[in-house]
């Protein structure tokens, strides 16, 4: 398997001069690998994912994508391959359909075509009717917005999706359906933050965020060790 992501010495302080909220000495993600990330609230899991996606201005460290460092002007391109899907991703005014169409208009996605059929099939499997795509986004429930964001990300067929509690507003049944649909229809890697250990078990190799982050010599190393630990 080829290494998609190699992260070294990633740290983030909320204010300059303060001690960092987290420090990850080494983190790697291989092609097709699926990780579920758990850890107490407030330890910086969200910021860790956002830093990996290069969305955090205050993050420092080295991120390599397929072995090369990402230059500044390649960042949008990189983000189109490593998509961050938050718990609450905001949506532009309009219908669910126009919200998906919007992202396909970005320059980095030029040449990609939205496979609307596949999205519709997903919605049927998830028990959402045909009319879902025509609903305006302010008529979607919190859970439906989460479904829309997941399907939007998958429609772009990125190599990695950083899921940040993407199903937190879904009931148990819908969560399972969503997971199963993803396992069958999305072929990339993911890093999935969750607070439920059951879900973590279902989704991939489990990593405890605490053991990912380094405080001096408390933990000698990286995800590899953490994984062995489990």
């Amino acid at each position: 398997m080829t290494k998609l992501l190699e992260v070294r010495n990633l740290a983030l302080s909320l204010r300059s001069g303060e001690s960092p909220l987290f420090e990850v000495q080494s983190f790697e993600l291989e092609s097709g690998e699926r990780l579920s990330l758990m850890g107490p609230s407030g330890t910086g899991k969200t910021l860790f994912l956002r830093s990996i996606c290069m969305l955090e201005p205050h993050a420092t460290g080295d991120i390599k994508w397929k072995g090369t460092t990402i230059s500044n002007n390649q960042i949008p391109q990189y983000r189109s391959r490593v998509i961050y899907v938050g718990q609450r991703s905001a949506l532009s005014y309009g219908t669910a359909r126009s919200s998906i169409e919007e992202v396909f208009k970005y320059k980095v996605h030029r040449g990609r075509v939205w496979n609307a059929e596949s999205t519709r099939n997903a919605l049927i499997q998830l028990g959402k009717g045909d009319r879902f795509l025509d609903k305006t986004v302010d008529h979607l429930s919190g859970g439906e917005k989460q479904i829309l964001n997941i399907l939007k990300a998958v429609a772009l067929q990125p190599e990695v999706i950083c899921f940040d509690e993407p199903t937190s507003a879904l009931d148990f049944d819908s969560t399972l359906k969503m997971e199963n649909w993803l396992k069958a229809n999305y072929h990339g890697s993911w890093i999935w933050v969750t607070h439920q250990s059951d879900q973590a078990k279902r989704l991939g190799k489990r990593i405890k965020f605490q053991s990912l982050y380094q405080r001096e010599d408390q933990y000698s190393s990286c995800s590899q060790q953490a994984r062995r630990h489990y």
């Binding site: 949008p76 391109q77 983000r79 899907v85 938050g86 991703s89 320059k107």
Partner: peptide
């Protein structure tokens, strides 16, 4: 007001200009 929306656009690969154009 649209801070989250701008961040979400960036997360889906928008350039900074595309994210803020509206």
């Amino acid at each position: 007001l649209e801070r989250e929306l701008i961040e979400t656009r960036l997360a889906f690969g928008a350039s900074s200009w595309e994210a803020v154009l509206p």
